[in-house]
Write a protein that binds this DNA or RNA. Structure first.
Lengths: 349, 349
DNA sequence: GTTAGCACTCGGACAAAATGAGTGCTAACA
DNA sequence: TGTTAGCACTCATTTTGTCCGAGTGCTAAC
């Protein structure tokens, strides 16, 4: 037995209906819902087949059918094109976004936080967005300056204008000239290098040149190492975690707690961040149910997209919702946001 | 009718019992629970009085009594001294904290995040902690440097070592000498000043001296204004929002959603941040039920404490839990944390 | 002032009954 | 051979009724 066109149509009708209502859908409903002009009895026969094929399942005897993960997958991969965002709605969203985008584009952090919030509000699902990660963090600029007695400020700018600050306490102050020398030394020795490239050789060479300021040089190197190491840099913004309460299948206490905890402990979301941005389609990936890398989200679907602010500087946007989420709308929205983010800085130049 | 000693004892017993069990407590229980040697009937009479006085109430006829907000208030203000943290437990907590404190004290942000997490874990309530606010933000140090073609980095250090960075795009680069001059100009003009003190006079004077670099000077001033203005600086870390699911009276969908949303939208918590740290007792304040400034928390109690990292640099710690929270333990814990935070930096110097 | 006794209230738990959506199967039909 | 009407059956949900017990308020006696 295999999926003929009629079965496809019926499956599609089931999924559509279930996405809308969230209720198991019965044969009678489909018999009217479609333009196939088939009686409920016939539909029942076909449904039995679809169940045997694994595309739908029954929560219990004498209930309607709901799509299985496999059914959703087929839908997402093959059947989804038809519907599209209502034009009016899209217009409205575009306006919203432009507003946000024009607002404070100079602060990436604010922009991304706003983005997350907007996504959550617009979709009624939970949204996450990771701050851009530089694939290979490179030092672009280092500056050491005296702020106060016994306190130095070390500013490190990485490729992609990621700025790190560190206050370093020193035993004795150094004069301006030495400071200048040190700055030149740091910049000439470390600029353009990744963490791996700052190897022992360079460090010992620097130590040699730093002369008496060994202690400071060591502190600076530590700061650089800290700034540059990728782990610490993972920053994730989330919004709309409480949207899950809108979906009864997710909002019983234990599930809700688990999900929201996952959102609170943002580290747990890191496995959703794409390392490679070679996604199937525009860098957009759809995880359905058990497919998701985060186990606590096994009752959800997750859709992620990768954006690229500047060459080599990319992050991930994710939408988490119930399995019966509006895949088309979310994919469209993510595509749009992705495009916007992709062009924010590129356009400006 | 007024509160004699016996009524006090009975009220105290009711509250203690309710804090432990979370169930309405009946006359029979109290009759045994206390060492008053009174029959349940007598207790009932007293309870009727206590109810009339407004210290306790009945969820419904034929249920036991639970404390009213007024009852809790009396308890917190007058009856609480007796119990104290178990010594063993306290020791354990102290150890935990020391561990956290010793870990990465150099990064205030990390420290506070860890603190919040620890508080939430230790108390089983939700915790919030506001990053230190400087009462009157003063500029301590400004540095402008060239990072790349057409890109300047402006670093602003405020009193209390709060560091702000801003990338400024410029039309044409400036030579090293001018840069040096500008830096000296900024530092000599702005250091030690608050936002109010940087008035139009100074700005126009600076404009005069900046000469051709007017555009840059303006950008820098903007950056300073942004860095220094208090609103943007409000940073609040939260943890353990999902702990509320541990208390049935808070964990039905709608209440939980409201509470967790409040935690997510951290701005909503700002009214809990104390502007003046002149609290009643050690800067610790207890809000019970309707007393709390955040309306969504009317079914909760909130306890806040103010800490002071350095002279004039303070923030607020808050614990949010059910009204039947363990007030003594929370107050003790907050006091302890407050002391720790108060001394972290002061000790070091 | 305290206590024992008793009638009364009311929420919660439990079980039986009613409801109804939906199925699977069979037999008839085109 | 595919389609359909009809019917018995299943099972989650809702409704209804009953019971139970914790706890109260009141009264009368101590």
């Amino acid at each position: 037995m295999e999926l003929d066109e009629r079965k496809m149509k019926i499956l599609q009708a089931i999924i559509r209906n279930y996405l809308e209502t969230g209720e198991p859908v019965g044969s009678r409903t489909i018999s009217k819902y479609t333009d196939l002009n088939l009686s409920s009895a016939t539909i029942r026969n076909e449904m039995a087949d679809l169940e045997e094929l694994g595309y739908i399942l029954q929560p219990h005897t004498s209930a309607g059918r709901i799509p299985s993960d496999k059914g959703y997958r087929l839908y997402v991969d093959n059947m989804m094109k038809a519907k599209a965002l209502e034009l009016a709605e899209k217009e409205k969203e575009v306006d919203n976004m432009r507003e946000f985008l024009n607002d404070k584009v100079d602060k990436v952090e604010t922009l991304l936080k706003n983005m997350a919030k907007m996504l959550a509000t617009n979709t009624d699902y939970a949204a996450m967005i990771s701050a851009p990660q530089v694939h290979k963090n490179k030092v672009k600029f280092i500056q050491l300056s005296q702020v106060e007695n016994h306190q130095m400020l070390c500013v490190i700018v990485l490729e992609g204008n990621i700025i790190k600050n560190k206050i370093i306490n020193v035993k004795e102050d150094i004069d301006n000239e030495t400071l200048l020398k040190l700055n030149i030394l740091f910049n000439s020795s470390l600029n353009g290098l990744t963490l791996e490239e700052i190897n022992l050789g360079i460090i010992s060479k620097m130590n040699g040149q730093a002369g008496e300021q060994l202690e400071i040089a060591r502190s600076v190197l530590d700061a650089v190492a800290e700034a540059i190491s990728a782990e610490d840099n993972l920053e994730i913004y989330t919004s709309g975690a409480t949207n899950i309460f809108k979906y009864p299948e997710l909002s019983d206490s234990s599930k809700a707690k688990e999900l929201i905890s996952t959102f609170e402990e943002k580290q747990l979301l890191s496995s959703l961040i794409e390392k490679d941005n070679e996604g199937s389609d525009n860098g957009i990936k759809v995880y359905i149910g058990e497919e998701t890398p985060v186990h606590t989200m096994k009752d959800c679907s997750v859709i992620t997209a990768t954006y690229e602010l500047e060459e080599g500087v990319h992050g991930t946007i994710g939408i988490i919702g119930p399995k019966r989420m509006d895949y088309e709308k979310v994919v469209d929205t993510l595509k749009y946001i992705k495009d916007q983010l992709d062009s924010v800085y590129k356009k400006k130049e």
